[in-house]
Design a protein around this nucleic acid. Structure first.
Lengths: 142, 142
DNA sequence: AAACAAGTTGACGTTAACGTAAAGATATCA
DNA sequence: TGATATCTTTACGTTAACGTCAACTTGTTT
């Protein structure tokens, strides 16, 4: 069969705690199988975890991420009304992502200009330093 | 003098509560002036609020946003050590933004394919519907 | 003067997303 | 067989980011 993972394997691979992974299951983001009592994660579960963390990095709440998962799952089985609802949810999300892209671009510009300011301030400090050095030893170049 | 704003003006312009704005001040993200007891916001304060909300949309915590503000402010007055620290912080942030860009691109692709699946499912539903209609009235085209 | 609007400071309540500690099951190794 | 490691559930604690009163001041309108 295809590969499976233990909870601590996934935890160390993605650098999260096992507590978090169990919590995500509690919030119905993951549905691992069980052997006896212990959880067995399929590669599909692994993908879900990866998507979950990606969503978190974008500032989505676990509830929002769960909503997206449910949308994806129900894409196969939904009624017409369901499908239209999904489309509008998808459109909504895509608009939010567009906004985020713009935000990122803006912040990138700001950081860039901050970096330039920083480098200029450093240069000025060094020039001052050199001036003082020249004042001490006012010899011409060797 | 340049324009000033009341707390409720800013609140309605950016669609946040006055409670939030006061909380941001408490976290030292804003430093409005006072006339007697009431807060007077300058256009610089307004920009800060806008930047704060932009940061939030990117998933930054208020503490992180404050850090960025402090970096920006100290760019003028920092010592050499400070300036290097700032540069590394800036670099760090820019890397995070790069990662976010990638994440957004991935999620956009996923949403796109979900949308396609959705539309196909809808088409199939409609074809079925048409088939059933044709079964009821099996006349050829008019 | 009375009443209204807009602002203020506490102070406590709430929710999300875990952290942390306790106590027990299960498997493996020496 | 006992020690060790890895898992489990249960449950209470914590932090961030506000919401929600309550009680008060200050200016404005009638």
């Amino acid at each position: 069969m295809s590969k499976t993972y233990s909870i601590s394997e996934l935890a160390s691979e993605f650098d999260v705690t096992t507590r978090s992974i169990r919590f995500y299951e509690d919030q119905e983001l993951l549905h691992p199988a069980r052997r006896g009592q212990t959880r067995i994660y399929s590669s599909k579960d692994r993908v879900r975890l990866k998507l979950t963390l990606r969503g978190k990095r974008l500032g989505l709440s676990l509830a929002e991420i769960r909503e997206l998962f449910e949308l994806w799952d129900e894409t196969r089985s939904g009624s017409e009304k369901q499908l239209h609802l999904m489309l509008s949810k998808i459109t909504e999300r895509r608009a939010a992502l567009e906004q985020q892209m713009k935000d990122i671009t803006m912040v990138q510009l700001e950081l860039e200009s901050a970096e330039i300011r920083c480098r200029q301030a450093l240069e000025e400090l060094h020039e001052k330093h050199n001036d003082e050095e020249r004042a001490k030893t006012p010899s011409s170049a060797p």
